[in-house]
């Protein structure tokens, strides 16, 4: 197949909005939205600061099935306030995950998929957003004992701040080339480190360090897929079929700490250095 034919046949996942993404992943006809936009559960904090709200606070919670199994999807809308986590949107995600864990304790094997497009906490909502992220993290750790929790970072926003920790806690993490995963966003690092060391406008440089491909070869994510809805769907099904991992990545911290311990912070660290560091030896079971 020529590149053009392949391009015309593929259906971009990145170009879909949060609601369309959730709909595309759930079995046809099974999509049911919880706390949808017509319930007007909006941020009480943004209007006080002169910022227009979105009716769903940028988070879509959808219940349905994948391959007939009960699944809840939490999809973040990256185009609304950078996908930032506020009180309402954060509580929607945490609540959905907590209910899924509750389902499992009651014998219903509900699983979860997180579609992450987020810069992290919504600064305008400060501690309320941070508290919500902490609740999301606790809920992921609770639910992953019963069922795999799968996160997808497709792009273009990426996943940063406290939500990058949430992504790291998931049973499986799927990314595209467009995805980025990092604790601090590029502009924050530039501000701290100086433009000489870290130029946030140098896109190839940024992606070489925090992009999906680099995160995959360094073992920080499980699957690296093209931006195609069917391929992402198939990868999610594969992860669910694998069941819970023997040991979650966040519980393999000793291996990662050992690797980080071998770094020489005085030397400039580039993408190749990081790859070599993580590639040497595979006793940690990194895929």
């Amino acid at each position: 197949m020529t590149d053009t034919a392949r391009l015309l046949q593929s259906r971009s996942f990145i170009e879909l909005g949060a609601r369309q993404r959730a709909r595309a992943l759930l079995d046809q006809g099974s999509f049911r939205e919880l706390i949808g936009p017509f319930e007007r559960m909006m941020s009480p904090w943004l209007p006080k600061q002169g910022i227009v709200t979105q009716a769903d606070d940028g988070v879509v919670i959808a219940k349905g099935t994948i391959e007939g199994q009960p699944t809840v999807i939490a999809a973040i809308e990256g185009s609304f306030q950078g996908g930032s986590m506020g009180e309402v949107g954060g509580a929607k995600i945490a609540g959905a995950l907590e209910l899924a864990a509750e389902d499992n304790r009651n014998g219903i094997p509900t699983r979860a998929v997180l579609l992450l497009e987020t810069g992290g906490v919504r600064l305008q909502e400060a501690n309320l957003g941070l508290a919500a992220i902490a609740e999301i993290q606790a809920a992921i750790v609770d639910l992953r004992q019963y069922q795999p929790v799968i996160a997808v970072i497709a792009g273009p926003v990426g996943c940063f701040g406290g939500m990058s920790i949430a992504a790291g806690l998931c049973s499986y993490l799927i990314v595209t080339q467009e995805a980025r995963l990092g604790l601090n966003g590029p502009q924050v690092i530039e501000q701290e480190a100086g433009i000489e060391e870290y130029d946030s406008r140098d896109r190839p440089f940024i992606w070489s360090l925090t992009g999906g491909e680099q995160r995959h070869v360094t073992g920080l994510v499980d699957a690296y897929v093209p931006d195609d809805t069917e391929t992402i769907h198939a990868q999610i099904r594969t992860c669910f079929r694998q069941g819970k991992p023997a040991l979650e990545r966040s519980r393999r911290y000793a291996w990662f700490l050992d690797r980080l311990g071998r770094l020489e912070p005085e030397q400039p660290i580039d993408a190749v250095t990081v790859r070599d560091l993580y590639a040497a030896g595979d006793e940690g079971g990194v895929k």
């Binding site: 936009p37 017509f38 209007p47 002169g50 910022i51 227009v52 709200t53 979105q54 009716a55 185009s79």
Partner: peptide, 30 residues
């Protein structure tokens, strides 16, 4: 129906049945 989103240069529109004979628009704009 719901269309659009509150992204840069865009808008979100929520349309719901109203009182017969009357169209009411409530606009919150930046």
């Amino acid at each position: 129906a719901l269309v659009g989103g509150v992204g840069s240069g865009d808008l979100e529109v929520l349309l719901e049945p109203g009182e017969a004979g009357m169209l009411r628009l409530n606009v919150v704009t930046s």
